[in-house]
Simulated assay, not measured.
Amino acid sequence: MPITIRKADADDIPAMLAILDSAVVWLNARGITAQWGTEPYSTRPKAVEVVGAYVTECSPWIAEIDGVPAGTMTLAPVPGAHVPPADEPEVFVRSLATEGRHHGRGVGSALLAHAVEEARRQGVSLLRVDCFAGSEGRLVRYYERQGFTPTETFTVGDWPGQVLARRV
């Protein structure tokens, strides 16, 4: 089934939260609780606020399969507060998530390919992302398979993070 990607807006906040909630359930079912915790995004006021800010301050996207939201990603000109900005213009991937039922169907890859297209469209040659570095680096390896190279590491409390970059 083809994956289509469209720009998200304020009407998509419930769908974005539902995708993030589903990703938490999917991770937890695999014993991964340190990445995004165990509580649904939609029940965390700060998380809901962040998703709302993505719609007004960034460039959120929704991937759909047969018109049904299957994934989400937000692109920003700068990283979140825990990662220093690059020394050049960049597009930063935030909150890439696939709805649990759609894992393994290429949704994340399609969204990241769209991020590459968006960076090129903006005339920006640096695409970066940060991710959870725990769970034996599984997510880091995923981004490496998508063409990213690990750069610096960071921690937020006891949460280990990895920044990765890709030239486009």
Results as ranks from 00 to 15, higher is better:
G123L: 01
G134V: 06
T155S: 10
R145P: 02
F148H: 06
E152V: 07
S135F: 06
A110Q: 12
E144Q: 09
A15D: 15
D130K: 04
L20D: 06
A18M: 07
G108M: 11
H103E: 11
L17D: 13
V168K: 04
A113M: 01
C131Q: 01
A23G: 07
I32A: 04
S109W: 07
P69W: 07
D12K: 10
C58F: 08
P77M: 10
E49Q: 12
D9N: 15
R44V: 15
W26N: 10
N28V: 12
P2V: 01
R120T: 13
R94S: 12
A23H: 03
L112E: 09
D158W: 04
W159G: 03
T72N: 06
G137L: 07
I65E: 05
D158F: 05
A18N: 14
V140D: 03
Q162F: 03
P69E: 05
D12I: 02
R120A: 07
F154G: 10
F92T: 14
G134L: 02
L111M: 07
F148W: 08
P89Y: 10
V107P: 04
A10F: 10
A29T: 13
V24W: 07
N28W: 07
P84N: 13
R121N: 03
P85Q: 10
L139D: 01
G137N: 09
L20W: 06
G104N: 10
A110M: 10
A10Y: 08
D66R: 07
L75W: 00
V83N: 06
H102I: 02
V25C: 12
I3W: 04
Q146P: 00
A165G: 05
A18S: 14
Y142V: 08
F132M: 05
V83F: 11
V91A: 00
V68M: 11
C131A: 08
I5C: 11
P84C: 05
P40I: 08
A70L: 06
R30A: 14
R30E: 12
V50P: 03
L111H: 11
H103M: 05
P69R: 12
A97L: 04
H82S: 13
L127T: 00
E144I: 05
P77I: 00
V51T: 09
G31M: 10
L139S: 03
H103K: 04
V116D: 02
R105C: 08
L75E: 00
A10T: 09
A115T: 00
K7I: 01
Q122I: 00
K46P: 03
E117K: 13
V129G: 03
L17N: 12
P14E: 15
Y54W: 14
T155F: 04
V51W: 09
A110S: 13
L126V: 00
C131V: 02
G161D: 01
V25P: 05
W61D: 04
L75H: 03
R166W: 01
T33W: 10
W26L: 06
G104E: 11
A53M: 14
A110F: 08
R30Q: 15
S125M: 09
P60K: 14
S59N: 05
G52E: 14
M73L: 15
D87T: 12
E118Q: 14
A70R: 05
T153G: 14
V129A: 15
L112T: 02
N28F: 03
F92S: 04
